[in-house]
Computed example of a mutant assay.
Amino acid sequence: MKKVLFISMFLCAFIMQAQDDANFKAETIKFLKKTVTEDTFINAVAQIGATVPEAKKAAFVKEAKGTLGGLYDKMADMYMKEFTPAEIAQLNKFYDSELGKKLSTKQVQLTQKGMQLGQNWGMEVQQIAQKYATN
């Protein structure tokens, strides 16, 4: 009887943990969809498929979009290693706010502009390094 009770408790705990993990993953994917807009992926699909003939483009886009679920799943795993369920819940709450929505819509262009600024800065520092390397 003790073995049956122990096994039942173990299975119940295992099922609850699996459900918690599934909820955590669902919340993480929800967060990702708020911050990494699907348009970003659609634009990437369009760029990658630029060489696909027009007659095959619809099939290509459909198949490529079909891979997004797997990408979100892998990205969620990555974020779940860095953030707790409570932190993901807080992030979702923030991205549901007006400020969070604004940040989400501007994030890609801000990142691109920031990368350009970083490249310009890197070239500036490279010139300084060259000045000191030749003296």
Score class of each variant (00 low, 15 high):
Met75Gln: 03
Ile7Trp: 06
Met16His: 06
Phe41Met: 06
Ala13Met: 07
Thr40Pro: 03
Leu68Met: 07
Asp77Ala: 08
Ser8Cys: 01
Ala59Val: 15
Ile88Met: 00
Pro85Cys: 11
Ala55Cys: 09
Tyr79Asn: 00
Met16Thr: 14
Asp20Gln: 15
Tyr79Thr: 01
Gln130Cys: 08
Met123Gln: 15
Ala86Lys: 15
Ala133His: 06
Glu63Cys: 01
Lys81Gln: 15
Met1Val: 14
Ala64Trp: 03
Phe83Val: 08
Lys34Val: 04
Pro85Ser: 11
Lys57Gln: 08
Thr35Pro: 00
Ala26Gln: 15
Ser8Glu: 07
Gly66Met: 06
Asp21Val: 11
Thr134Asp: 04
Gln130Lys: 05
Phe31Glu: 03
Lys81Thr: 14
Lys65His: 13
Lys102Cys: 02
Gly122Asn: 02
Pro85Phe: 12
Met78Phe: 07
Ser97Thr: 12
Lys2Cys: 12
Met75Ala: 02
Tyr79His: 04
Cys12Lys: 09
Leu11Thr: 01
Thr134Cys: 00
Gln17Val: 15
Val45Asp: 03
Asn23Arg: 12
Asp39Trp: 05
Tyr79Leu: 04
Thr84Ile: 00
Asn43His: 03
Val45Lys: 00
Lys57Val: 14
Val45Phe: 04
Ser8Ile: 02
Lys62Tyr: 03
Pro53Asn: 11
Thr105Gly: 14
Gln130Glu: 05
Gly70Glu: 10
Met115Arg: 14
Met80Arg: 12
Phe60Ser: 00
Gln127Pro: 00
Ile42Ala: 11
Lys33Ser: 03
Asn43Ala: 07
Leu32His: 06
Lys93Gln: 15
Asp77Ile: 12
Trp121Pro: 03
Phe31Pro: 04
Ala44Glu: 14
Leu68Glu: 00
Ile48Tyr: 10
Phe14Met: 15
Thr134Ala: 03
Asp96Asn: 13
Lys30Pro: 01
Phe94Tyr: 00
Pro85Tyr: 14
Lys101Asn: 07
Met9Tyr: 06
Asn23Glu: 13
Met75Tyr: 04
Leu103Asn: 07
Ile48Gln: 14
